[in-house]
């Protein structure tokens, strides 16, 4: 089974088609989930509506157990990357600032374009292309000065907690499901 898919992984032409197909389904689900709308995303950031959180946490709840099972049976070998305070915390906060100004993220901006949002096209897409181009220019300067600073103590949550992977997953799943139930309970 692994060998079958490793051939597929190396097939560049097929992967181009797969990338497009994954995008089509992803865009379809984002639009159906309601998260390609500026109003829904801003309402999440203003904490008046939790649709974005519900979509993201449902994806993680299902995907976390699914990927762990695929890994357990040897079908996939995911390699989560290590992180740093300099890269992940600072970059995350810069992203958050832009997220609130634009009202879309890099995936949902493409979905919003598909649903007819012109501010996403002539504002968002153009802005993101400018921002990522500036980053590409600055990358050699900030790479060793900022991005590698403050390495995180562990790569994965189970390493940090020094727990068995399945126990970690049970705790994480319970916390996420509990949070969603709490949201429903308080009326969001």
């Amino acid at each position: 089974m692994g060998a079958l898919f490793s051939g597929l992984h190396k097939d560049k032409g097929l992967q181009i088609i797969l990338g497009l197909l994954f995008g089509v389904v992803f865009g379809f689900l984002l639009q159906k989930g309601g998260v390609t709308s500026y109003n829904v995303i801003i309402a999440q950031l203003l904490l008046t509506d939790f649709t974005v959180m519900k979509v993201m946490l449902s994806a993680v709840i299902v995907g976390m157990i699914g990927l762990a099972l695929l890994k357990h049976f040897g079908y996939v070998q995911p390699h989560p990357a290590s992180g740093t305070i300099g890269s992940n915390v600072i970059g995350g906060l810069i992203f958050g600032f832009g997220f609130a100004l634009l009202g879309y993220c890099p995936g949902t901006v493409a979905g919003a374009v598909g649903a007819g949002a012109l501010d996403a096209l002539i504002g968002g897409v153009v802005g993101i292309l400018v921002g990522t181009a500036i980053f590409a220019e600055l990358y050699p300067v900030i790479k060793n000065r900022l991005l590698i600073k403050g390495p995180l103590p562990a790569i994965t949550v189970q390493e940090l907690l020094r727990l068995n992977i399945w126990l970690t997953i049970i705790i994480m799943e319970a916390a996420m499901i509990g949070f969603l139930l709490l949201l429903e309970y308080v009326g969001y």
């Binding site: 992203f95 100004l101 009202g103 890099p106 802005g127 993101i128 292309l129 921002g131 990522t132 980053f135």
Partner: peptide
């Protein structure tokens, strides 16, 4: 939106990924 997009794209690459 352009300003926000620029920070968003810049921050996403700084952090090594997006939402």
């Amino acid at each position: 939106a352009i300003l926000g997009g620029a920070f968003l794209g810049f921050g996403a690459r700084w952090a090594g990924g997006c939402t």
